[in-house]
Design a protein around this nucleic acid. Structure first.
Lengths: 217, 217
DNA sequence: GTTATACATACCAACGTTCGGTATTGAATA
DNA sequence: TATTCAATACCGAACGTTGGTATGTATAAC
C-alpha cells in the first residue's frame, strides 16, 4: 500500500479496528495478525511503525475511550449555573445516557475475558477521573454545606468506583433486578453523606441498559 | 524423574511454584518454562498431564487462595454465640490480621501487572464469598434489627467489594494516609446502614499493612 | 536532490500446547 | 507368589502461533 499523506488517518484506522476487536474478542485473544486481517491491506510493519507494542495500542484505545467521557466531566465540573449536588446528578444522568454505552453493550459479549482492558479502565477511573473531575465537585459541595465528609478524595474514589465498576451491568453481569437494587442501595449510601442525586428517570434508563445487555446472551 | 506414587504431591508442587511465580512476576509474565525451571526436574509434559492449560493452573491457584479464606468465613458465619454485627466485625478483624496477607504483600511487587489474577479473585469474591458468607449474616442482621436495607444481596456485594478491593492497599496503591481515610469513610458508609464495626485496633493494623507494602517500593 | 517517514517483507525467539513414547504403578489373574 | 496388563505419571521433541524486529523501498516534504 502506498504511503499515506496524513498518517493520522492510518493511526485512527488501527485504533478503530483494535477497539472493535478488543471489545468483541478481548485484548488477550486478539492477535496483531487479527488486527491486520481486519484492517484491510495494512502490514505488521505499519502497525509497529505507529505503535511500539500491542500494549501501546491498548493504552491508546482506552485513552480514546475515556477522553470523550472526561470531556463531558470537565464541562459539567466547570459550569457555574449548577451547585455541587446538581453537578453530580447531571454526571450520573449523562453517564448512563451516553450513546457509546449502548454500542459497547451491544458489541461486547465476553468482557469477562478482558481483564487487562477492564483493569486499564479501572486504573484511569481511580487515578484520573476521581481526582480531576469528581473531587473538585465534592469539595464544592463541602464548601456549600451539601456534602458532609472529612475525606473528600476518598469519597470521590468511592463514588466513581461504585458508579463505574460495581454498577456496570456489563462488568458484573447483573440481571435487571440486581442492577436496580444496586442503584437504590447506591442512593442510600450517598444519602449517608448528605447527597440525594438519583431520580426516577435514571432508574428507567438503567433498566433499559441492563435489558440490552441481557438480551445478548 | 521417577513416577510419583501419589500424584497429589506433584500437583501441589506445581501449584506452590506457580502461586509464588504468579505473585512475583505476574501471571502473564510467567511462562510454562519458568514454572518448570523453578520446579526442579519436572517436565512440560508432566504439567500438561495434570492441568489442561496454563489458565487452568491459574484457576487452581486462586481456588486454593480463596479456600482458606472461605473456611474462616464459614466458621464465623455459623457461630451461634455472636450476633450479626459482631460477626461482621470479626470478619474484618480477621481479614486484615491473616498472616497470609503479610506474605503476599512482601512478595508481590507488581500486582498491577497481574490483571488476570486480580480479576479472577474479584470474580470469586463477588460470586462466591458475597452470597455464601456475607449475605447470610446480613440477613441475620436484618432479622434482629441491627441492619437496615431492602437489598441484602447488593449490600453484601458492596461491603465485600469495598473491603477486599477498594481498601486493599496492594491493589490500589495507597499511602498510609489514604488507606486510613478509606477505612474511616467505609465506617461512615456502613453507619448509613445501621452498622458500626470498625474499632481502634483495626485502624492500627491497617496502618501496619500499608506500611509494609509501602516499604517495598 | 536530499531527507524523513509511511509502509512492506521476511524473519526471529519465545510462547502455550500437543503428541508419541517410556517407565512405573497397583490390581487382576494364574 | 509370580505374571500379566491396563492405567497413568512423566518425558522431551516438535508444532503452530505469537509479539516483535531488521531491512528494504517508495513517496511526501522541503
Amino acid at each position: 500500500m502506498a504511503r499515506n499523506k496524513n498518517p493520522e488517518e492510518t493511526v485512527n484506522r488501527i485504533l478503530d479496528t483494535s477497539y472493535r476487536l478488543f471489545l468483541e474478542k478481548g485484548y488477550e485473544y486478539t492477535s496483531t495478525q487479527d488486527i491486520i486481517d481486519n484492517l484491510g491491506g495494512l502490514s505488521k510493519g505499519a502497525i509497529y511503525h505507529h505503535f511500539k507494542s500491542k500494549e501501546d495500542i491498548l493504552i491508546a484505545v482506552t485513552d480514546r475511550m475515556t477522553e470523550q467521557s472526561n470531556h463531558m466531566l470537565a464541562e459539567i465540573r466547570d459550569r457555574t449555573d449548577l451547585n455541587a449536588r446538581e453537578k453530580l446528578r447531571m454526571i450520573f444522568k449523562d453517564s448512563i445516557n451516553r450513546p457509546v454505552q449502548d454500542e459497547i453493550f451491544a458489541v461486547a459479549p465476553n468482557i469477562h475475558n478482558n481483564a487487562k482492558l477492564l483493569f486499564s479502565i479501572l486504573h484511569e477511573t481511580i487515578h484520573d477521573a476521581a481526582p480531576n473531575y469528581i473531587l473538585p465537585i465534592i469539595q464544592e459541595g463541602i464548601a456549600d454545606g451539601s456534602i458532609k465528609t472529612d475525606y473528600p478524595a476518598q469519597l470521590a474514589e468511592l463514588i466513581i468506583l461504585v458508579a463505574n465498576v460495581w454498577m456496570n451491568p456489563m462488568i458484573l453481569d447483573d440481571t435487571e433486578e440486581e442492577s436496580l437494587g444496586k442503584f437504590i442501595l447506591f442512593q442510600q449510601m450517598l444519602g449517608g453523606f448528605g447527597l440525594d442525586i438519583v431520580d426516577e428517570e435514571m432508574l428507567g434508563r438503567l433498566q433499559e441498559l441492563t435489558a440490552i445487555y441481557q438480551k445478548r446472551k
